[in-house]
Structures are given as C-alpha cells and as structure tokens.
Amino acid sequence: MARQRQGRLLGALLLLLFLLLGYPAVLVVEELQHHLGRPVLPVWVFGTWGLIILAAALILEQPRERR
C-alpha cells in the first residue's frame, strides 16, 4: 500500500519535473529573463531542480514498514 502510494507520488513528481523544466515553461522563463535583464533562468532551473530533489527525499525517506 505504502509502496504504491510512494510510486504514485514519484510519478507525479516526474510529471512536475517535465512540466517545470521542459518546454514551454523554460521558454517562458527565458523570455522573462530577456525582458527583465536579470539572470532569472539559472535561478529558476536550479531552484526547481533543488525543490524536486527535496520533495523526492521527503517521499522516499518516509518511515515505512520493512519488507
């Protein structure tokens, strides 16, 4: 049960990664960067990446019964 839930959460995270760090999100942030003249894209990419790792850590380190 817990494994299934974990699998679903990780799947959702995977989709999120695709969504936030793929086209078109990256294109939008890139345009924003051109517009603002500030380094928004590197912060966005690394920030999102870090948050997804954090979420994965939270999901995977949940205490669960040992098999």
Binding site: G22, Y23, V26, L27, E30, Q33, G37, R38, P39, L41
Partner: peptide
C-alpha cells in the same frame, strides 16, 4: 551574471541558442 549581461553575453544565460532548440533540450 551582471557582467555577462553587460558584456553582451546574455545568451550564455539562455537555454536555447543557435543549433540548440527547446526540442533539443527535451
């Protein structure tokens, strides 16, 4: 980053560029 923008190196903060599109990124 600020100096890069001053030095017209803004394209180094981008993903896409000549010979590299968003499809390539994916």
């Amino acid at each position: 980053f600020a100096r890069a923008l001053d030095a017209e190196l803004g394209h180094l903060l981008d993903v896409s560029g000549p010979g590299f599109s968003h499809a390539d990124w994916l």
